[in-house]
Amino acid sequence: MSSEIDPGDYEDRLETTERWEYGVLTRRDARRYARSVEDENPLFHDVEYAREHGYDDVVVPPNFLSAIIDPTEGCPASELREDGLDPNQFPIDMPSEVILMGGGQDLTIDRYATAGSSLTIEETFVNIYQRESSSMGVLTFLEQESEYIVDGDERVLRCEATMIVGDRQ
């Protein structure tokens, strides 16, 4: 249960940063992400069109970067949680029988990344707190800040994200 989580247990993990090398963002990444939401913006699909508008290749949809749930290959299927998620993707020891919800994101887009860029992700665990909900009991909020850096040194996106942990109803 969410109420079993003690935020005080994780004070020493706050402000710790993990870093992943995602690898090269490909044209296929950009096009598949756009297609998955039926977004036919030619900046995402058409190399010549993107070049005519000042980009060196197709634009990667900005929120694709922050929508990547797991930048690694993930754990073996036999180790996934009952809800299907990788237990290693959380900054805390997540209880088994909880509901996990995306709470939202705040994106600051410095510039659009383009296909061919090599992406590095730096994710910092910045806050954990709890609130009582009239309908769902104790909710635990996890806040993370991520920076998305291309080609080693240029930040293209900053994301403040909130994950909400609740109890099964």
């Binding site: 977004d39 913006n41 949809p61 900005p62 994101q105 887009i109």
Partner: peptide, 26 residues
């Protein structure tokens, strides 16, 4: 959850064309 951000992004980037730059989305 992120799908909602993606369709907001798509609406604004389509509406304002390639000259418009989406700078913030929350």
């Amino acid at each position: 959850a992120h799908f909602h951000g993606a369709v907001m992004q798509g609406l604004l980037m389509d509406q304002f064309g390639p000259e418009g730059q989406l700078t913030d989305l929350g």
